[in-house]
Design a protein around this nucleic acid. Structure first.
Length: 661
RNA sequence: GCCGGCUUAGCUCAGCUGGUAGAGCAUCUGAUUUGUAAUCAGAGGGUCACGGGUUCGAGUCCUGUAGCCGGCACCA
């Protein structure tokens, strides 16, 4: 007999060899029917796999997070089986569970097409209907390799060979006459898989994630416990697509991109640049009140400078190189660069230039910490496949700053930075911030004591700002640990925005030093830091976050004064707009010969926060009928009242705080 | 950079098995002067991404290039 402890703490006895399914059946028929797998002493366990002694057992159903994971994992297996039945020349590789679904990587000469999806999904349903029992088997490693090789599954054989330690057994799961290497667990049979799955997209992916390896074909799918969940997920995707910053950028006339004219660079239109200006002005105020000094450094610097900084060697392939010469000849004559022409490069980052500013003149310990900030326009020749809307571009402007300080000032500076960053993100409406702390890599500069201090300092800083933090061991740069602050776009892609990096190396390379209190020359430590990351990326994320409906302080146009008819209220509309503009509001007038319905609709679609409708009545009484975006009520107030309330309402968050309101 | 897909009017798209381009919105013009999410009518607008080829004939077929999209790799 074995004793089983249930999640509620109660204990029951079973025959030796009893499985979690027996346990479920003894509790209730419906639980046995809903059961997908079990957790045995905290470990995932197949439903029909016999228990190996006394244990605590929890039955997993589709309601549990683990249940959904099982469903997705099984969906991946069923997909693989379906594909191999339809396309015997396809080899299987791996098929893990991911957010919202799963994927499976296949090796096959012939490319798959999304047109194949219907067929494959139909086959998957057939496999579910067939209700094959899914059976766990334990195989000897060498025998498994031989068997997978025999059936032509070279990738599987390689996985087993590489991943499983010699002598260790592996588990194989069989469903029908198909089987796969798998740690498990799985559902008891394919019939338990809800048919709420759908193949989503095809993509290329390198074997084992290494670009030197061959490319496999990855099929992405989504799978859910019910049709309803699936449908909701698809609806969410559709909604997210509408928030795509590229789509909204065009609709709201914020910017455009032209891959022919300037691949990976943004043409900002008046509306989009107005948002930019507001953000930049806000950041300037925050920096000015946080002890930073703003500078402006050259766009082009001589290659010698980049050699000194070390970028010329390793980073060169990402830099735009500009030969320093005057081309000869007329139009039509091919330009040839003289062999002796000096080379310059557009800056891919601002740090070397900031060190130059630090180095000009003598610096004393009294000058530290010196915080040099720049809205620095950088160019990086990114791999073409990496460019994405305005999130990943080749020309971008960082809200960059470098803090030069003594080592004993690192912690305090880091704490101040994290607090500032947290407050800035909050002002933009971001509450959830993902923070990653990347610690010392295997190959690194500096001694362990220094790394200890640096890493602990960063951790203390994150804690002081009250931010949760995830560790990425070994992911730091060779010159120091770093903090990365990440925000998520509309469809769940994560983008790095803020960063804080400790650097002992660059000041050394470029020979930065200050005079210490004892008169000796000392090396400053350098903190690379950005809050928004890049203006482009941050605005892209803001667009998606707000679905284009910016808060009023950021909105390109804050108020539209719409006249019901030009004859009755056109002149008054102009007067109102002039008054509002005098207070600093960004106002447009709509006197067009259109119905008020049309105007309200159009400005609503343009996400203007406030529409001030004026007709004969308002003109007569010197009032405004205000309509807020997202509500269809009206607020009729006097022009004088509106001047006060709108001005306050449109204040940026930092200025609102400063007013103490 | 790699794999796959896509590229037709300013935008969103249609164009069957090859027979010399079409809709809606937008724009312009005219009428209408309007009370909170589309007033009516008319007009203009395209080297069908670019280059080569097959064909009597190519938006449609083949091929090269570029860009974009989805992933992968990259993001020191």
């Amino acid at each position: 007999m074995i004793q089983v402890t249930l999640p509620d703490g109660s204990k029951r006895e079973y025959q030796d060899g009893a499985s979690p399914l027996d346990v479920a059946e003894s509790i209730s028929k419906s639980l046995a029917k809903k059961a997908l797998a079990a957790k045995v002493d905290g470990q995932m366990w197949d439903l029909v796999r016999p228990l190996e002694g006394d244990a605590s057992v929890a039955i997993i159903t589709e309601r549990d997070a683990e249940g959904l994971e099982l469903i997705r994992h099984d969906a991946a297996h069923v997909l693989a089986q379906a594909v191999q039945e339809l396309y015997p020349d396809a080899q299987v590789t791996i098929g893990p569970v991911i957010d919202d679904g799963f994927y499976y990587d296949f090796a096959r000469k012939e490319p798959f097409s999304t047109d194949d999806f219907d067929r494959i999904e139909a086959k998957m349903r057939e496999i579910v209907d067939a209700d094959y029992p899914i059976q766990r088997e334990v195989w000897d490693k060498d025998a498994a390799i031989a068997e997978f090789k025999r059936i032509g599954e070279d990738y599987k054989a390689q996985i087993i060979d590489d991943i499983i330690p010699p002598g260790e057994a592996i588990t194989v799961y069989k469903q029908g006459n198909w089987f796969d290497l798998c740690r498990g667990p799985h559902l008891p049979s394919t019939g338990k898989l809800p048919k709420a799955f759908k193949l989503m997209k095809l993509a290329g992916a390198y074997w084992r994630g290494d670009h030197r390896n061959e490319m496999l074909q990855r099929m992405y799918g989504t799978a859910w416990a019910s049709e309803k969940d699936l449908k909701e997920h698809l609806t969410r995707l559709e909604e997210a697509e509408k928030r795509d910053h590229r789509k909204l950028g065009a609709q709201l006339d914020l910017f455009h991109l032209d891959g022919m004219a300037a691949a990976g660079s943004v043409f900002w239109h008046p509306n989009g640049f107005q948002v930019w200006r507001q953000i930049e002005a806000y950041m300037r105020r925050r920096l000015d009140t946080s002890g930073y000094e703003e500078i402006k450094t050259p766009q082009l610097m001589d290659s010698v400078q980049w050699e000194k900084s070390g970028h010329w060697g390793k980073y060169r392939e990402n830099m735009f190189i500009v030969p320093d010469f005057i081309p000869e000849g007329d139009e039509g004559v091919e330009i040839s660069v003289p062999e002796n022409a000096k080379l310059m490069a557009l800056k891919p980052m601002n740090c070397p230039a900031h060190v130059e500013v630090f180095k000009s003149g003598q610096k004393s310990y009294r000058d530290l910490p010196l915080r040099l900030a720049e809205f620095g326009c950088c160019h990086r020749n990114e791999p073409h496949g990496a460019i994405h809307g305005i999130m990943r571009v080749r020309q971008f402007t960082q809200d960059d700053a470098h803090i030069f300080c003594r080592e004993d000032q690192i912690v305090e500076e880091s704490i101040q930075f994290c607090r500032l960053l947290e407050s800035v993100y909050r002002d933009f409406g971001f509450e959830k911030i993902a923070v990653k702390l990347s610690t010392r890599p295997d190959v690194r500069a500096g001694d362990d004591a220094t790394w200890d201090r640096a890493e602990n300092g960063l951790k203390a800083a994150v804690d002081a700002a009250g931010l949760p933090c995830e560790l990425l061991p070994g992911e730091g740069a060779f010159y120091g640990p770093k903090l990365e602050f990440q925000l998520t776009d509309a469809i769940g892609r994560v983008w790095q925005c803020g960063t804080l990096q400790l650097d002992y190396v660059l000041p050394e390379r470029l020979g930065a030093e200050y005079i210490a209190s004892d008169g000796s020359k000392q090396r400053p430590v350098m903190l690379h830091r950005a809050i928004l990351g890049s203006m482009e990326r941050f605005i892209g994320i803001l667009i998606e976050e707000f679905a284009g409906a910016f808060p009023i302080w950021l909105a390109p146009v804050q108020v539209v004064v719409a006249a019901i008819s030009d004859d009755a209220a056109g002149a008054y509309a102009e007067e109102v707009a002039a008054e509002l503009r005098r207070t600093g509001l960004r106002v447009e007038v709509d006197r067009r010969n259109e119905t008020i319905n049309y105007k309200v609709r159009e400005h609503s679609l343009q996400k203007v926060p406030v529409i001030a409708v004026v007709g004969a009545r308002e003109a007569e009484e010197r009032k405004l009928a205000l309509r807020r975006l997202g509500s269809n009520g009206q607020q009729v107030i006097t022009l004088d009242e509106a001047l006060v309330s709108l001005t306050v309402e449109a204040l940026p968050p930092d200025l609102k705080r400063a007013r103490g309101s």
